[in-house]
Amino acid sequence: MAKCGARTAATMGLVVAALTVSFTTPARASVTHPQTQAAMDAAVKAGVPGVTGQVTEKYSIWTGMSGVGNLTTKVPRSPVDRYRIGSTTKTFVATVLLQLEAEGKLSLNDTLDKWLPGVVQGNGNDGKQITVRQVLDHTSGIFSYTSDPVFLENGFTEKFLQHRYDTYTPAQLVGIAMSHAPLFAPGAGWSYSNTDYVLAGMVVEKVTGRSYGSEIDRRILKPLGLYATSVPTTASSMPLPSSRAYSKLSLQPTPAGKTYDVTELNPSEAGSAGAMISDSDDLNKFFSALLGGRLLPAAQLKEMKTTVPVGAPYPFNGYGLGLMRTDLPCGGSVWGHAGGIQGSVTQAVTTADGGHSFSFNFNGDWAGDSQAVTNAEYCPK
């Protein structure tokens, strides 16, 4: 679940001693990714407790790690760590909705009010004027509930420790957003909104009669064999194997700030905007299958990749339907989605044909340059 406005996913923070480990498949043991490994090490030197990631290409798999998965025991991060993927969840949700469109069960031009009558209203919000497409590409203008001052304080300051097990319903999250006026008229601008994807999950449930998690499981996870990926609802614990997750719990974190273990939390605070758990191998398989045309018909994949421009402070250059396009400094682009939730920063990308995929995770949310890691992989010097 990306957090916008009051804080970014990674700023300068505590410096932690780096323990570097590399793993390659036996078939390609002589091939390494030294620039990618160096960028992971640099993130740890900048303050990230630990990094784990995997590169999947046609004939090889490379896994790099740096730093620790537990600041107390100093156990290193694992190549099979599961972690909270935050807003990378959005690509799964968008894929389900586009599958439903391909099946003729909904249209991207349907209004929210068609499926969720009366849900988006008040303070200038009007679900009769907002389409499913505008929700998926963040042109709806709907305020992001994660930018609400009370929600920010309860979730991203030391008050998190009092509220980490709170349960939110989708209706409650949307209600927080409806207490704010829209940022702009539908279609008149672009602004990242977690509320958009809470609504998207609600549409999935209304169309299918099943939860968004059930649809992701039967349409994506089971067909692709993504056994490390799950869609928790309110369970606060992490499945094993996994590392601990850390945060400064400050809207303006500093290197000197106290570091908190935030591994356990109730993921209903993110819901269909960012509750999922996965690992690097599964994320590579998912994005490779998606961009490779195995999950969507060509028409729907084209819609997904039709982007609108975004501006600062975002490191990506265009946003489609649950899909980010990032233009590389060496030319070309990668497609995927970033994700941030307390204590966890994830990046999952692949090339346009799905042939070169890279997913990685920081188990701290206040330091490190995730885009530098991506650039090191796709633009090695």
Rank of each mutant, 00 (worst) to 15 (best):
K159I: 03
V93H: 08
K74Q: 14
S87C: 09
K105G: 07
E153N: 12
I142L: 15
G155K: 05
S147A: 15
H138W: 06
I130S: 01
S144P: 00
V80C: 05
P117L: 13
R77W: 02
L116K: 03
L98R: 12
N123M: 12
L97A: 11
S78T: 15
E153T: 13
Q162Y: 08
T89V: 13
N70K: 05
T146K: 07
N109Y: 05
D81K: 12
K159R: 15
K114M: 11
T88I: 05
V80E: 11
T139V: 05
D166E: 10
G104N: 13
L106C: 04
V150P: 00
Q129C: 03
S78C: 02
N154E: 15
R82W: 02
L71A: 10
H138F: 04
T157Q: 12
G122Q: 02
T146Q: 06
D113W: 04
D81S: 00
Q134E: 09
S140I: 03
G122Y: 02
L100S: 00
K74F: 04
W115A: 02
G104S: 08
L136H: 11
F156E: 01
L112K: 00
W115D: 01
V150E: 11
T88K: 06
Q121D: 03
S107L: 14
D137G: 03
E153C: 02
I142M: 09
R77E: 03
K105M: 11
T91W: 14
V80Q: 13
N125E: 05
F160G: 08
F143E: 07
N125D: 05
Y165H: 10
F151V: 12
D166S: 10
T167W: 09
Q162H: 12
N125G: 04
K74C: 01
G122E: 00
L106W: 10
S147R: 15
N123E: 11
Q134W: 07
T146N: 13
V80Y: 09
T89Y: 05
V80S: 14
V93P: 00
N109R: 10
T139D: 05
S144Q: 09
S147T: 14
N109T: 14
K74S: 04
V120L: 15
Y165F: 10
L97M: 14
